[in-house]
Design a protein around this nucleic acid. Sequence first.
DNA 1: GCGTGATGTAATAAAAATGTAATAATAGAA
DNA 2: TTCTATTATTACATTTTTATTACATCACGC
Lengths: 235, 235
Amino acid sequence: MRPKVLLVEDDANLVELVTYNLEAAGFDVVTTPDGEEALVLASEDEPAVVILDWMIENLSGIEVCRRLRRAPATANLPILMLTARAEEADRIRGLETGADDYLTKPFSPRELVARVRAVLRRLRPALSGGTLDYAGISMDTAAHKVTRGGQAIPLGPTEFRLLRHFLEHPGRVFSREQLLDAVWGRDVYVEQRTVDVHIRRLRKAINVNDTLPDVVRTVRSAGYALDGDAHDIAA
Amino acid sequence: MRPKVLLVEDDANLVELVTYNLEAAGFDVVTTPDGEEALVLASEDEPAVVILDWMIENLSGIEVCRRLRRAPATANLPILMLTARAEEADRIRGLETGADDYLTKPFSPRELVARVRAVLRRLRPALSGGTLDYAGISMDTAAHKVTRGGQAIPLGPTEFRLLRHFLEHPGRVFSREQLLDAVWGRDVYVEQRTVDVHIRRLRKAINVNDTLPDVVRTVRSAGYALDGDAHDIAA
DNA sequence: GCGTGATGTAATAAAAATGTAATAATAGAA
DNA sequence: TTCTATTATTACATTTTTATTACATCACGC
């Protein structure tokens, strides 16, 4: 799911330029030149971040900023102000009103993208790192949560570590010995067959009691691998 | 409790100017001109934010930034870069390395203060006296009051700090050790199991004697997290 | 000093996870 | 096909981890 950016800007050229760059950087972009409409879009469209021009129609950017902050639904929405006004007093006023960052025109699109990313990295760690994704499986390592196709998957500690290791090296095959080293630890003595049992437990959980296609591939006499198309591929 | 700022800067005049302004704005300031020492101070002194000059002794600011991000203890510390290099490529490099904001010299002290406040407001709302909201729970950090679904929740001091820490990082899992560091303090020696007891007290209070859904998620062999859907999603 | 509430520890109960072994199933080779 | 090596699956005893309670101590306001 690409993070969504709400761009509030009335200069059509700028909208095009910024939209192009943001989309190239992996964002979905929604735009409006109108302050009132921006408030509606902000609460209904649930963007991950708002880029707000100071001079826009109907309501000034700073007023939009203030109202976004005041409404509970959008009080925590990251806001990046955009403006031609370079005076220090304005910058400070913008920041103190509740903007998270402040860019003055002319600005480079690449810097804008970098700043949007910096803001998001702070606020929505899930959107830029901290999660491992592969074959419809998503693992949030900070929250210790796993989903497959959006559905929450409960995992025991060992299964969690096992899956994390696979997700860190998707597609690669690991022998039981390698898995014991990586997941259990180098100096732990357990039977190699124990790996089979935990693979079974992981499969059961992540395939939701075998109702979904298996994503763990057994490689006979070699080991196991995580594989999006586990059983379409003949080895 | 005044939030602490770590200022890493080797220009003595600038140090004086910035320190004066930050202290006037209600911050405690710790300074060093040395990159290596900055790393030590960052992990031991627990500043709320780091202001980092690009050109400093021993290690470049950007290298310090990178190392801070890499170390788990400081990975989430807000960083504001400070530099004479105004080139776009540098700004982007700074932001992509993990800086949260970027100011070019010459800058106005007032803008610096405003940016520090903006960063803190986002990352540590509790430090700038706001309210924290998550999953129906609302904490007024200034008034030391907590409500859940509008109902007042009485909390002891430790439970309050514990909940505040969770609210500052909703959803994230913390080990008992991390909680002891963050909530009790780094130099306090108490048993890890003591955390369990306070979690129990927090649960009892915030779930109103177990009449409301639990919002504290136990993550076996990992720790605890605050979680709006605590028991639909285990991991 | 006295009462009140908060705090940390220890003991015990409860729950969950783990490793092993036994047995069934399967793939691949001869 | 038949045999054999390898993996799958299940059940279960044990261990590990967490929950809960009780209690002694401490700090603070009155």
